[in-house]
């Protein structure tokens, strides 16, 4: 189906500071890759660089290549608006627009040219179903998204990201602002979504990384220290630093 996402010597600078120091990584399709590491290790910056969200931050620049198949998307020729439909993103704090539930989901498709009401209705329903939110909100699609609970808002944000039909989904600590029940719903959802999507998730929660991911990458000081199957990283890491981090001795 999709083309594999791969980075080659990807570096991200904030001003003079090199936040991500040359990462080579290939992401397995239809699986979940977790990025872990102590605060400030560059994992979120790396994640944001994958759909060029760092472009929106003044003073940041990134070098190296990000390949989707044989296409380098880290070039000035790439139309980021098209790229970001292919690579969706969900943030740490739920950030629904101050609009109705329906309008939140229809926002993306509308601006990408879908005007037909029936088609939009279908997209809204499909996206909400995929995000396991449809049953909870189908009777109040036109009420404000802000009336939803935090967990529902986050699933709405996932549904919103799905509305433009991405191949890859980037999740930046999607459950860290949520209660345990909402968290487990999000995790369940991730397991469901990976059947059709490539998912990259940044998390501070070791158990979460162990539960939801197939592969785990350990970042430290802007470098990729270790990258392997999750079961191996958590049971038999090759580097002592990784071992110390996952067992909670620092970070």
């Amino acid at each position: 189906m999709t083309d594999t996402l791969r980075t080659e010597n990807l570096k991200v600078y904030y001003g003079e500071h090199e936040a991500v120091k040359g990462i080579d990584m290939t992401f397995a399709e239809q699986s979940v890759t977790a990025l872990i590491g102590p605060s400030g290790c560059g994992k979120s910056t790396f994640l944001r660089s994958l759909n060029r969200m760092n472009d929106e931050i003044p003073g940041s620049r990134q070098t190296g290549n990000i390949w989707i198949g044989d296409k380098d998307i880290n070039s000035s020729e790439t139309d980021v608006t098209v790229l970001r439909q292919k690579i969706g993103m969900v943030w740490q704090r739920p950030n629904p627009f101050y609009k109705s539930i329906y309008e939140n989901i229809a926002f993306g498709p509308k601006y990408h040219g879908i005007k037909n009401r029936k088609q939009l209705d279908q997209i809204v329903e499909d996206s909400l179903r995929k995000a396991a939110l449809w049953d909870e909100v189908k009777d109040r699609l036109h009420t404000s998204a802000l009336s939803l609970s935090g967990g529902q808002q986050q699933r709405l944000c996932i549904a919103r990201a799905l509305s433009v039909n991405p191949d890859i989904l980037l999740l930046d600590e999607p459950a860290s602002a949520l209660d345990p029940i909402s968290t487990s719903k999000i995790e369940e959802l991730i397991g469901e979504l990976k059947k059709s999507l490539t998912i990259v998730i940044v998390t501070h929660n070791m158990q979460q990384a162990a539960r939801v991911s197939d592969f785990t990458a350990y970042f430290y000081l802007g470098s990729l220290m270790e990258y392997n199957e999750t079961s191996i990283i958590f049971t038999n890491p090759s580097k002592p630093n990784t071992q110390e981090y996952i067992s909670g001795r620092f970070g």
């Binding site: 929106e56 629904p96 926002f107 990201a161």
Partner: peptide
């Protein structure tokens, strides 16, 4: 205006103008 609202819009592939009149102004 919370930064993350703009990010959400950019993240969906909206352009700056779409973000301004679709998200920023209404909010």
């Amino acid at each position: 205006l919370p930064r993350n609202l703009k990010e959400a819009s950019y993240g969906l592939g909206a352009t700056r103008w779409q973000t301004i009149y679709g998200v920023i102004i209404p909010t």
